[in-house]
Design a binder for these strands. Structure first.
Length: 137
DNA sequence: GCCAACGTTGGC
DNA sequence: GCCAACGTTGGC
């Protein structure tokens, strides 16, 4: 079991819409590091759903439903997509500012490399964010 | 709207 | 293969 953070701009694709649609195809990723992270995902892995640009907070949890396959939106190049299903909303959102102020989370890519859209985190970091979000699995 | 950080491109 | 220029992302 691996843990991840995935980013989405809520005016493009929000967590609420994800809850309504019940499945999300994560395509359009055009960054090698992010793509490699998508490829490393296994079925059942959990990903925190972060709202970038607007909101700037972790709002929910997604679960890997279908592991990587060729990105249908890629006209050329070697790109991958995965499918997620919702795995619940956080009790309360966890803002980036709080994450930055939490010493145990100082090492995560969300803080260190703000531009990466799909990034790993370890179990302790995942649990810390769930606790901040007053959420139990 | 600005700008820092990072990735990619392309000339040499 | 280096590095300057440029483009994009995303926080502020």
């Amino acid at each position: 079991m691996n843990y991840w953070i995935i980013k989405s701009e809520p005016d493009v694709y929000s967590f609420d819409r994800f809850l309504e649609e019940k499945v999300a195809t994560w395509d359009g990723v055009r960054n090698y590091q992010a793509r490699n992270n998508l490829r490393a995902m296994e079925k059942g892995d959990l990903a925190l759903f972060y709202h970038s640009n607007i909101g700037l907070e972790v709002v929910g949890i997604a679960k890997v439903f279908e592991t990587h396959f060729p990105d249908p939106t890629a006209e050329k190049g070697d790109w991958s997509a995965v499918r997620f299903i919702p795995h619940g909303k956080l009790g309360k959102p966890v803002p980036l500012s709080l994450i930055k102020n939490t010493p145990e989370l100082g090492n995560i890519a969300l803080v260190r490399n703000g531009r990466l859209s799909v990034m790993p985190l370890n179990e302790e970091e995942f649990d810390t964010i769930l606790k901040l979000g007053e959420t139990k699995l």
